Each structure stands twice: as C-alpha cells, then as structure tokens.
Deep mutational scan, measured.
Amino acid sequence: ETIMEVNLLKGPKGLGFSIAGGIGNQHIPGDNSIYITKIIEGGAAQKDGRLQIGDRLLAVNNTNLQDVRHEEAVASLKNTSDMVYLKVAKP
C-alpha cells in the first residue's frame, strides 16, 4: 500500500468522485475505511489523473477519515474550499 497526498482544485461539478464505506455502511465487510468507488467523467479527479477507483481515502484537509461514519466523510468533502488536500492509500 502506498500513501499519496493529492491537492485537487474543485471544478464546477465539485471534486468529481464518489465514495462508499464508513461505520454502518461498510464497502468491504469488516472494514470501516472510505473508498473511492467512482471517478466522474470530465470531473476534477479524472482531469488530475492520480485518484483511482479502489483508493482508500485517509484524510480530507485536516480531517482524519479512519473509523468515521459515511455521513461524516461526505460532510468533510462538502465543507471544503476550492483547493482540497486529500491523503489516499493506493492498493
């Protein structure tokens, strides 16, 4: 597993990826991690090219996303300014 830091500039459609996982909404049984499950065509993440489906999202800005509820992860992604710092684990 490789840890990678990505600074992503939000586009008109936001960050351009979808997530799944978290406490109460496990993407993988027994694993509370938050995973990237979709990269949106023409979105910021696709244009940047570094994020991939299956990457594990560890942090957004200063918010640690390990062992959080799905709703908390979504809220932390929404409550960001235009430049967003992401910390991901690549499988």
Rank of each mutant, 00 (worst) to 15 (best):
E1K: 14
E1N: 15
E1P: 03
E1I: 15
T2Q: 04
T2M: 15
T2Y: 15
T2C: 09
T2D: 15
I3F: 06
M4I: 12
M4W: 05
M4T: 08
M4N: 08
V6L: 11
V6F: 14
V6G: 02
V6Y: 13
V6W: 09
N7M: 03
N7Y: 05
N7E: 15
N7C: 05
N7P: 07
L8N: 01
L8K: 00
L8Y: 09
L9D: 08
L9P: 11
K10E: 05
K10R: 06
K10F: 06
K10L: 07
G11C: 13
G11D: 14
G11N: 14
G11Q: 08
G11L: 05
P12Q: 10
P12C: 06
P12R: 08
K13E: 13
K13A: 02
K13D: 07
K13F: 04
K13P: 04
G14M: 03
G14H: 04
G14D: 06
G14E: 04
G14I: 03
G14V: 02
L15S: 02
L15G: 02
L15P: 07
G16N: 01
G16F: 00
G16T: 00
G16M: 01
G16D: 02
F17D: 00
F17C: 03
F17Q: 00
F17I: 03
F17N: 01
S18H: 05
S18P: 01
I19Y: 06
I19M: 07
I19L: 12
I19Q: 01
I19V: 14
A20D: 11
A20L: 09
A20R: 08
A20T: 10
A20M: 10
G21V: 02
G21F: 02
G21D: 02
G22S: 03
G22K: 02
G22N: 02
I23S: 13
G24W: 07
G24N: 14
G24F: 11
N25R: 11
N25C: 14
Q26T: 14
Q26F: 05
Q26S: 13
H27T: 09
H27L: 05
H27D: 09
H27K: 14
H27N: 10
H27V: 04
I28E: 10
I28W: 08
I28M: 13
P29I: 12
P29G: 12
P29C: 14
P29D: 15
G30I: 03
G30K: 06
G30L: 08
G30R: 10
D31Y: 03
D31Q: 06
D31M: 04
N32G: 05
N32V: 06
N32M: 05
N32I: 03
N32S: 13
S33D: 13
S33M: 14
S33W: 06
S33P: 03
S33G: 13
I34D: 00
Y35R: 04
Y35I: 15
Y35M: 07
I36P: 00
I36C: 04
I36S: 00
I36V: 15
I36E: 00
I36G: 00
T37W: 05
T37K: 07
K38T: 13
K38W: 11
K38H: 12
I39E: 01
I39C: 05
I39N: 01
I39T: 04
I40M: 11
I40K: 11
I40E: 14
I40D: 12
I40H: 12
E41H: 15
E41G: 08
E41P: 13
E41S: 12
E41I: 13
E41L: 06
E41A: 11
G42Y: 08
G42K: 08
G42C: 07
G42P: 04
G42E: 12
G43H: 05
G43L: 07
G43I: 00
A44M: 12
A44Y: 07
A44Q: 13
A45H: 01
Q46F: 15
Q46N: 15
Q46M: 10
K47N: 15
K47A: 13
K47D: 13
K47F: 05
K47V: 08
K47H: 10
K47C: 04
D48L: 04
D48W: 02
D48S: 09
G49I: 02
G49N: 09
G49T: 04
R50L: 08
R50E: 09
L51F: 04
L51P: 02
L51E: 00
L51M: 08
L51H: 00
L51R: 00
L51A: 02
Q52I: 10
Q52K: 14
Q52Y: 07
Q52M: 14
Q52F: 05
Q52H: 15
Q52R: 11
I53F: 12
I53V: 11
I53P: 10
G54H: 06
G54R: 05
G54T: 03
G54I: 00
D55A: 11
D55F: 11
D55L: 09
D55K: 00
D55V: 06
D55M: 10
D55C: 12
R56A: 10
R56C: 14
R56S: 12
R56T: 12
R56W: 03
R56N: 03
R56E: 05
L57I: 08
L58P: 00
L58A: 06
L58C: 07
A59F: 09
A59D: 04
A59W: 15
A59E: 10
A59Q: 13
V60T: 03
V60F: 04
V60W: 02
V60Q: 01
N61V: 02
N61D: 14
N61W: 02
N62S: 14
N62Q: 04
T63Y: 04
T63A: 11
N64A: 08
N64L: 13
N64C: 09
L65C: 09
L65G: 00
Q66R: 07
Q66W: 11
Q66V: 06
D67Q: 14
D67R: 10
D67N: 13
D67H: 04
V68I: 14
V68T: 08
V68P: 04
V68C: 15
R69F: 04
R69V: 12
R69I: 08
R69Q: 14
H70I: 14
H70L: 06
H70A: 07
H70R: 06
H70C: 13
E71M: 08
E71F: 03
E71N: 08
E71H: 03
E71T: 07
E71I: 11
E72I: 09
E72G: 06
E72L: 09
E72C: 09
E72D: 05
A73F: 03
A73P: 01
A73C: 06
A73S: 04
A73I: 05
A73M: 03
A75T: 06
A75M: 10
S76Q: 13
S76P: 02
S76H: 15
S76V: 13
S76G: 10
S76Y: 14
S76L: 11
L77D: 01
L77C: 04
L77N: 00
L77K: 00
L77H: 01
L77R: 00
K78R: 10
K78G: 13
K78T: 11
K78E: 10
N79Q: 10
T80E: 08
T80N: 15
T80F: 12
T80V: 12
T80I: 14
S81Y: 07
S81I: 13
S81R: 15
D82S: 12
M83I: 10
M83L: 09
M83N: 15
M83R: 14
M83C: 15
V84G: 02
V84N: 15
V84C: 09
V84S: 06
V84K: 02
Y85A: 15
Y85S: 12
Y85I: 08
Y85P: 12
Y85E: 13
Y85C: 14
L86R: 00
L86W: 00
L86A: 02
K87E: 06
K87Q: 06
K87G: 05
V88I: 14
V88A: 04
V88F: 04
V88C: 10
V88Q: 00
A89G: 11
A89K: 07
A89H: 03
K90F: 02
K90C: 08
P91T: 11
P91F: 02
P91V: 07
P91Y: 05
P91H: 07
